[in-house]
Structures are given as structure tokens and as C-alpha cells.
Computed example of a mutant assay.
Amino acid sequence: MIGGIGMPELIIILVIILIIFGAGKLPEIGAGLGKGIRNFKKATAEAVDESGENKEKIEQK
């Protein structure tokens, strides 16, 4: 369960997205979503590094 969203809800959302965008656009949407998540994680990690909280963990490795 992801934040109160179960499997039936996810399936319904995916079907609606498929109807709206069509099967041809799904790879583009997935790639864009993946890039967005990757950039968000990178920015979050950089912000933590700048604050000094994560530097101790890096030095221990």
C-alpha cells in the first residue's frame, strides 16, 4: 500500500492513463517520470550533503 492507495486503485489509474494518452505515449511518459524521480533524488542528496548531515556517512565508507 502506497500512501493509502491499494492495488485496485493503481490499476484504475493506469487504465485511465492508458485511455487518455494511448499505448504509444506510455514509454515517453515513463521515461519522463523516471528522469523526474532521479533528478529529485539527486537534488535531495545534494541538499543533505550541503547541510553536512551526510558527510559523516560518506567518510565512514
Rank of each mutant, 00 (worst) to 15 (best):
Ile17Gly: 04
Leu10Ser: 01
Glu53Lys: 13
Thr44Gly: 13
Ile13Arg: 11
Glu59Lys: 13
Ile58His: 06
Lys42Gly: 08
Leu26Cys: 03
Thr44His: 12
Lys41Cys: 09
Thr44Asp: 14
Phe40Gly: 13
Pro27Cys: 01
Leu14Ala: 15
Gly36Ile: 02
Ala43Val: 10
Lys55Ile: 11
Glu9Thr: 12
Gly22Asn: 08
Ile19Tyr: 04
Glu28Ser: 10
Glu56Ser: 07
Gly4Cys: 05
Ile12Tyr: 06
Met1His: 04
Ile5Arg: 08
Ala45Lys: 14
Lys41Ile: 13
Lys42Ser: 13
Lys57Tyr: 11
Glu53Gln: 12
Ala45Thr: 12
Gly24Leu: 07
Leu18Ser: 10
Gly4Phe: 06
Gly24Ser: 05
Thr44Arg: 15
Ile12Lys: 13
Ile16Leu: 14
Ile19Lys: 04
Gly6Ser: 00
Gly6Cys: 00
Gly4Gln: 06
Gly52Trp: 04
Lys57Gln: 10
Ala23Arg: 09
Ala45Cys: 09
Gly36Trp: 09
Glu46Arg: 14
Gly22Ser: 04
Ile37Cys: 03
Ile5Gln: 02
Gln60Ala: 12
Lys57Glu: 04
Glu46Trp: 13
Ile13Gln: 07
Thr44Asn: 14
Leu10Gly: 05
Ala47Gln: 15
Gly4Leu: 08
Leu33Glu: 03
Ile58Trp: 06
Asn39Pro: 05
Ala23Ser: 08
Ile16Ser: 10
Asp49Lys: 15
Ala31Asp: 05
Ile37Met: 14
Lys35Thr: 11
Glu50Cys: 03
Ile19Trp: 03
Lys35Gln: 15
Phe40Trp: 12
Glu59Leu: 12
Leu18Ile: 07
Ile11Leu: 11
Ala43Arg: 15
Met7Glu: 07
Ala43Gln: 14
Glu9Tyr: 00
Gly24His: 01
Arg38Trp: 11
Ala45Met: 14
Gly32Thr: 11
Ala47Gly: 15
Leu14Gln: 09
Phe21Met: 05
Leu14Gly: 02
Gly24Trp: 02
Ile5Met: 09
Lys57Ala: 09
Ile20Lys: 05
Val15Thr: 07
Glu28Val: 02
Gly24Glu: 06
Gly4Lys: 09
Gly34Tyr: 10
Gly6Arg: 00
Glu50Val: 11
Met7Lys: 09
Gly36Thr: 04
Gly34Leu: 09
Leu14Cys: 07
Ile37Ser: 08
Gly24Asn: 04
Arg38Val: 13
Leu33Thr: 12
Ile20Gln: 03
Ile20Leu: 10
Asn39Ser: 13
Lys41Ala: 14
Glu9Leu: 09
Leu26Glu: 00
Pro8Phe: 02
Lys42Met: 12
Pro8Met: 07
Gly52Arg: 08
Glu46Asn: 14
Glu9Val: 11
Leu10Gln: 11
Ser51Val: 08
Lys42Tyr: 13
Ile29Gly: 02
Glu59Asp: 10
Glu28Lys: 11
Asn54Tyr: 13
Gly34Arg: 14
Leu14Trp: 03
Ile58Lys: 12
Lys25Leu: 07
Gln60Glu: 08
Glu9Asp: 11
Ile5Ser: 02
Glu53Cys: 00
Lys57Ser: 08
Lys61Ser: 05
